[in-house]
Design a protein around this nucleic acid. Structure first.
Lengths: 208, 208
DNA sequence: ACCTGAACACCGTTCAAGT
DNA sequence: ACCTGAACACCGTTCAAGT
């Protein structure tokens, strides 16, 4: 790759990361190109679609998730580990608007981090299995349920006029109570292992 | 109102309802005006923004919700009533893409049906109170939690390639287990009563 | 090879001109 | 009064012309 191309690519990633993290995935490509000091065409030369640019940013983010999953798996108390993973992931969603938008619209996609995702799911499976052996986690919970539940609780994370911003903590508590071994009902079949990926959905823009 | 104006309004509502229900809120105003056989300007004369048109459609929908809430309140078993209300609401979301989009993007707004919404919340409050007195519903659950939880579970209702379409039933089961009186943890403060309304958010369009 | 910005297609919304 | 469709502003994406 030519030197100026490599530099432009780095600049684009930096500008996109800053803009997306602060304002969410709605910021336009023109704004990002401007911030990076390159033409719009250059952006699309490096990233064929806006979604590709977003995915490149998310490749970096998922590394953090992996590290937290590792920490959670090392917690001697499996329930505490599970709770910590949920809480951290949702805190990250409130901190990083890009992550929240990405989860809500399921644009987390296969690609460079396919392996990382698999590793995270394996760590979660380990935590859940240990929790079930200890009798504290409902027996039918699986690792691939976790992203669904995170996305669900995340849907209530939006602050709105007059409401406490941390209201998602309330619903996380309720959902976690539903994941305990106590009075679990029959929840039926879990989603298939490969079900977390969805490429059919694109970024949603918010009307003016 | 002039005769042709009234007729155009009816046509617009009918065209919008059909289009939104089937394809979701992403269908363009041009398409709806075309289906109704009127100019785009006429659409905006009757409904100043696209959101206003959507709200008019939702005014009709919320009447159905009220009826189901009434039925649920008459159920001698409060838990069964609560479960029925959740299940029906989520089934409606999968049947009606417009309702699902509206809930997901919180464009349910105040207006003509402000009273209806209040009545639904009162009915839910009654069901929940009776369930708490019977010792089957967690003591800290409030009526205004219900729309949040519905929106949360609804976020997992999306079918995606290779996954069972009814997967939301699995997460509804888990969430409902978390609403039982059994091993409820402290969930903190509920949202304020008026917190269900959010006008700051607009319809999201899906990128091409 | 890579960069650039004008041009394009597609949205919601406005408005001058008609009846 | 109300209707109409061309025009506008704003998105993501493409591409002919430059270096």
């Amino acid at each position: 790759m030519r030197a100026d191309a490599a530099r432009n690519r780095t600049r684009l990633l930096k500008a996109a990361e800053a803009a997306f993290t602060e304002h969410g995935l709605d910021v336009g490509v023109a704004e990002i190109a401007r911030r990076a000091g390159v033409g719009q065409g250059t952006l699309f030369r490096h990233f064929p679609t806006k979604d590709d640019l977003i995915a490149a940013i998310m490749d970096q983010r998922i590394q953090e998730v992996l590290e937290v999953a590792r920490e959670a798996a090392q917690n001697p108390d499996p329930w505490a580990g599970l709770e910590r993973f949920f809480t951290w992931s949702l805190e990250a969603q409130t901190r990083d608007r890009a992550l929240k938008d990405a989860l809500a619209h399921r644009i987390i996609r296969e690609g460079a981090y396919e392996e990382v995702r698999r590793e995270i799911l394996e760590l979660l499976a380990t935590i859940i299995r240990r929790g079930q052996q200890a009798g504290v986690v409902r027996p039918d919970l699986t690792a691939q349920d976790v992203p669904f539940l995170l996305s669900a609780v995340g849907a209530s994370a939006d602050p709105f006029p007059g409401a406490p911003t941390g209201i998602w903590r309330r619903y996380l508590t309720m959902v976690l109570d539903g994941l305990r071994a106590g009075g679990a009902s029959d929840a039926g079949e879990p989603p298939p292992a490969e079900a977390v990926i969805d490429l059919s959905r694109r970024v949603a823009r918010t009307g003016s």
